[in-house]
Design a binder for these strands. Sequence first.
DNA 1: TACATGACTATCC
DNA 2: GGGATAGCCATGT
Length: 103
Amino acid sequence: MTAFQKQVFAALLEIPEGKVVSYGELSSYLGVQSAQAIGQALKNNPDSPQVPCHRVIRKDGNLGGFMGSLENNNKRDLLKAEGVIFDNTGQLSTTEAWYSFPK
DNA sequence: TACATGACTATCC
DNA sequence: GGGATAGCCATGT
């Protein structure tokens, strides 16, 4: 568990229910300029049920590759239950779900 | 220590 | 507008 990962997860927990953030925004918030670093931290997610890693999506509104790695299409429904609507192609259907970090 | 990889993004044909 | 390219940072081998 690196300090960087802790920051990633801490930031994730600040995301209110029904909101999502992009890798880029998250990385900027943490002070780095690499969204891939975020992905690395997330895929090593030690607390998968606790950390809402499914609230981190690509900047273009696509869920990204983690969806297939996890379950099937249940993630979309899970997010939908939280208020984040995706269409059947895995694209974010509403721009109102985007969350901006206060920093 | 050095090189390769990735759940990404921005730019350039 | 869509595909290819090159930076980007942290990790793992």
